[in-house]
Nucleic acid binder design. Structure first.
Length: 895
RNA sequence: GCCCGGGUGGUGGAACAGGUAGACACGCAGGACUUAAAAUCCUGUGACCCUAAAGGUCGUACGGGUUCGAUUCCCGUCUCGGGUACCA
């Protein structure tokens, strides 16, 4: 399986097919090995660019998308992929998104039972609430509610529905979201980078809005645990682990003190991973957004606190991130009581505390936390050492090594012991309990966009209600414009009659205006390939059981914490609810590296029309300009074409070196704006599709990022010619039926074995070398025998299908290569005649021992010692021992 | 800062289980064929020393260690790339 592409208007560049080529090779190889292979392709066809184009031109996104898909298909076909196009899926196809909507409704209709550790039908929750209220209820929820069964049963239907949103896996809530005014939509955390939108780089603000969300947090532990069961690269697994960010610690309540110095009955709760440092607490810091931030302020501090809260909330996320080093804060004037020492502790507000994590409050331990240390230093708060090992006046001692000091009952313990002892004491006093916190946030699911799946929910008395599944697909309505309405509603608010009318009801209920995010359709598309035309289910249980998990998934690592996390989440959910028999979607994942572009530069002398060759550029004040790489070959600029390239260069003058204009070059991301895009169509036109396939594999390991250059393509092209010449002589077919000799069989079988080994390790680049060696050796042997060349054509077929197919047909086989099977190698043809001979003397004697595998180590040792050259190498010394590695080297150690 | 992954000739990269480092390809140099070009083929190509032929020394970022033997394993350092961050 390849990660399906978003069909952008720019078409494919040479980087896109890299992964497709690799997966196509595996698919063709496995088919030849007799496996039934599902190798599909489709399009992630909802998305922003088509919509933005629609906004500019009024063209319906479906039309642009259709055109782009046609272009993609043409380009893909040119490369000779063996995709099963019968199974193509498009996320924007109503027949497809009908099931995206259906899965959404299942999520809406489910809750997460902590007791059974799985998602269950909302009905089981209803029964629980009716019978016992929230008593004994262990559910993943937005907030802890306490409702008795009688209270529940007395609620109106609308109230019950509202309450259930607290538990549903797809739920509507008032949430602080990443709002991007320029794009007019909410973005997921994954879609925001450095405070700006990933797409377009527009500023993003924090804003409270009524939003649909997915309770992915319910699956945090299982998403972590599942990583141990799948073959993914360590870096992606780490990225997901960090993203989920599980940290174990404890909550701790600090009694709030009344101005009189007595407890006022309220508590400030903090979360800490270091309860062992509790005696080092010298202040408490709340996030400026903390609900008590203002009311805690004592009258004399009030004005200052208000100013600070004002300042902090007005700062955008971006500004905050830009200067995280800057320490800001304000004292509220209020105090809490230390839970063990009883000392009063001042309460501060500080920007470094995030409202959205933990409880939005931290205990300040400046001796052992860097951020607390910086805060204490800035505001002159006391720094207490409670773990020996460092100089806490200078720097916080954050290491988890050392002995507890100044800590009452914890004194003398190690950090590890102290953490356990502190949690025990905290829980014993009822002041908190051991807890696990996650960095992972529930995923926002609403997008204020047009070109996405409509959310199949209507509103009855302001309460969201699921549409009956018979009404799916809920099709995208047509709108006059693809922009938000004047009142700021999403584009769907423009659709006329956007309402749900139940069959035996005269009422019309408004339908949700927002659409689903891009990751909705891509979270389950791999399942649809298994049964793409099913109209009764997203896929039949038979086909799901037959194909099972994706064995091999190839795609870029940019989806590490987006698509790859969400698909795992949805798969686990569908597994819980019994629609799937597996709970991890992708057994093995390979991340192909990016193919970068090699940009070319010309150097213009500032304020002139003169361009100086690279060797002269230091002598002038120059500006480097990107120049289209197609105007440059071997760093030499085609001056005439350059002048014709753009009007502004028509009268350009040049300062050359050795009569040539040499361009500078730099490796950058391949992109239109950098003029370094290489179109695969051009490469195919010049060298053929097989050559492009082989060359992309030959460039280096699949996982590696590497710049595109065609320096080595002549080697691959020459290889293909050589294959051709093995089968042809002076233009005519030259394969004969002579019996093969030993040397020829050895070349063939060695090659088959090596190709199989490479394939098992997905080492495509070394395979190409293996083919080259094989063809060189057969050429040297002058071998044109059918018995050797026919298997050669077969093993070459996954890599160079066009060439192989043509040769196969010429060899007289009807029905195509697909019906053939991969040849097997045999040990018999690989054994050596000689088995041991000396290689060099270097204090020790080394023997090359290319041995038959049937010989035992003892037999080898005896043979090595009996070797006629042995006395010469020993030079009178005594043999101490013989180290034998079968198939490798025999070392004779002599003294 | 933290996490992950790298560092091998002029270049891309091989070396799969600790066993001849540099496969294969590009580039470069020389040569063959050709009126010429293209194409094709042959030879050489890690550095250094030394040869008539041979032969030798060093060499996988750097410094140590384990081992008969280390590109590979361990410890430390440097460095490049990617991810991520006031997550308490």
């Amino acid at each position: 399986l390849d990660m399906f592409p978003y069909p952008s208007g720019a078409g494919l560049h040479v980087g896109h097919p890299l992964g497709y080529i690799a997966s196509d090779i595996v698919a063709r190889y496995k088919r030849l090995k007799g496996f039934e292979v599902l190798h599909p392709m489709g399009y992630d066809s909802f998305g922003l660019p088509a919509e933005q184009y629609a906004i500019q031109t009024g063209q319906h996104p479906a039309i642009t998308t259709e055109q782009n898909i046609a272009r993609y298909r043409q380009q893909l076909d040119r490369l000779g992929f063996s995709f099963d196009w019968e199974r193509e899926v498009r996320t924007s196809d109503p027949a497809y998104y009908r099931w995206t909507q259906w899965i959404f409704l299942q999520l809406y209709g489910s809750w997460y039972n902590v007791a059974t550790q799985k998602a269950e039908d909302i009905q089981t929750l209803l029964h629980h609430l009716q019978a016992q209220g929230t008593q004994n209820l262990q559910a993943v929820q937005s907030e802890a509610l306490t409702i008795s069964s009688s209270e529940w049963n007395a609620m109106s239907e609308a109230e019950q529905h509202k309450t259930l949103l607290n538990y549903r896996l797809a739920y509507l809530s008032e949430a602080v979201v990443n709002w991007c005014p320029a794009l007019g939509t909410v973005l997921a955390n994954e879609e925001v980078k450095d405070g700006v939108s990933e797409r377009g780089g527009h500023p993003v603000e924090r804003k409270k809005m009524l939003q649909w969300s997915m309770r992915i947090n319910a699956y945090a532990d299982r998403l972590l645990e599942g990583l141990d069961r799948i073959e993914w690269s360590e870096s992606i697994k780490e990225a997901q682990r960090n993203w989920i960010g599980r940290s174990r610690g404890s909550t701790l309540r600090f009694a709030l003190l009344h101005s009189s110095g007595e407890p006022d009955g309220r508590f400030i709760e903090v979360f800490t991973t270091r309860p062992d440092t509790v005696f080092g607490v010298s202040f408490i810091t709340l996030a400026p957004e903390h609900e008590w931030a203002l009311e805690l302020a004592t009258p004399d501090r009030r004005q200052e606190v208000e100013q600070y809260v004002q300042y902090a909330t007005n700062r955008s996320e971006r500004e905050r991130q830009a200067d995280v080093k800057k320490v800001t804060g304000v004292f509220t004037g209020a105090f809490v009581r230390h839970p063990f020492s009883g000392e009063p502790i001042p309460i501060w507000l500080g920007e470094y505390v995030l409202a959205g994590y933990g409880t939005g409050a931290v205990m300040g331990v400046p001796g052992h936390d860097g951020r607390d240390h910086a805060f204490a230093r800035t505001f002159g708060l006391p720094i207490v050492e409670v773990i020996s090992g460092g100089n806490v006046e200078e720097e916080a001692w954050e290491a988890k090594t050392g002995t507890l000091v100044n800590s009452d009952f914890l004194d003398g313990l190690s950090v590890e012991e102290a953490i356990a002892a502190a949690i025990e004491a905290i829980e014993g006093e009822g002041m908190g309990k051991g807890t696990t916190q996650y960095r992972l946030r529930d995923a926002t699911f609403s997008r204020q966009r047009y070109w996405g799946e409509p959310i199949p929910v209507y509103f009855k008395e302001g309460v969201p209600m699921p549409m009956p599944t018979e009404h799916l697909p809920l099709q995208l309505p047509s709108v006059d414009k693809y922009l938000p309405t004047e009142s700021g509603e999403p584009p769907l608010a423009r659709a006329e009659g956007w309402a749900y009318r139940p069959a035996n009801d005269h009422q019309a209920f408004p339908i949700e205006f927002s659409t689903m995010p891009g990751w909705a359709g891509s979270s389950w598309y791999f399942l649809r390939y298994m049964d793409p035309h099913n109209t009764n289910a997203f896929a039949s249980s038979e086909s799901l059981a037959y194909w099972n998990q994706v064995d091999l998934y190839i795609g870029g690592n940019e989806h590490a914490t987006g698509h790859l996390l969400y698909s795992r989440f949805w798969t686990k959910f569908l597994f819980d609810r019994g629609w799937l028999s597996f709970d991890e979607p992708f057994k093995k994942l390979i991340n192909q590296g990016m193919i970068q572009g090699t940009s070319a530069f010309v150097y213009r002398v500032q304020g002139s029309h003169t361009f100086v060759s690279k060797g002269h550029k230091e002598k002038f004040m120059t500006t480097a300009l990107h120049v289209d790489v197609n105007l440059v070959s071997n760093n030499v600029l085609d001056i005439e074409r350059f002048k014709a390239w753009r009007e502004e260069f028509r009268n350009a003058e040049f300062l050359l070196e050795e009569d040539k204009y040499i361009c500078g070059s730099e490796v950058e991301k391949m992109s239109k704006s950098k003029w370094n895009v290489v179109n695969p169509d051009d490469v195919v036109a010049q060298y053929g599709a097989d050559c492009l396939r082989l060359y992309e594999m030959f460039l280096g390991p699949l996982e590696l990022s590497k710049p595109w250059n065609t320096n080595g393509i002549t080697g691959v092209s020459g290889f293909i010619r050589k294959v051709w010449r093995l089968f042809h002589h002076q233009g005519s077919w030259a394969v004969n039926d002579e019996a093969p000799v030993r040397a020829e069989l050895k070349v063939l079988h060695k090659t088959i074995k090596k190709i199989e080994e490479d394939m098992e390790r997905f080492s495509f680049n070394t395979s190409v070398s293996t083919f080259m060696i094989c063809v060189n050796e057969l050429t040297d042997l002058g071998c044109r025998k059918r018995s050797i060349l026919e298997p050669l054509a077969l093993i070459l077929a996954p890599y160079a299908p066009h060439l192989a197919e043509e040769l196969w047909e010429r060899l007289g086989h009807a029905g195509g290569i697909a019906s053939a099977s991969f040849p097997a190698w045999s040990e018999e043809h690989l054994t050596e005649d000689s088995f041991a001979y000396p290689v060099s003397v270097n204090g020790k004697t080394r023997f090359k021992a290319e041995l038959s595998l049937s010989l035992s180590a003892a037999e080898v040792e005896a043979a090595v010692l009996a070797h006629p050259d042995m006395p010469r190498f020993l030079e009178g010394k005594q043999v101490k021992k013989v180290v034998v590695v079968p198939g490798k080297i025999a070392n004779v150690v002599a003294v």
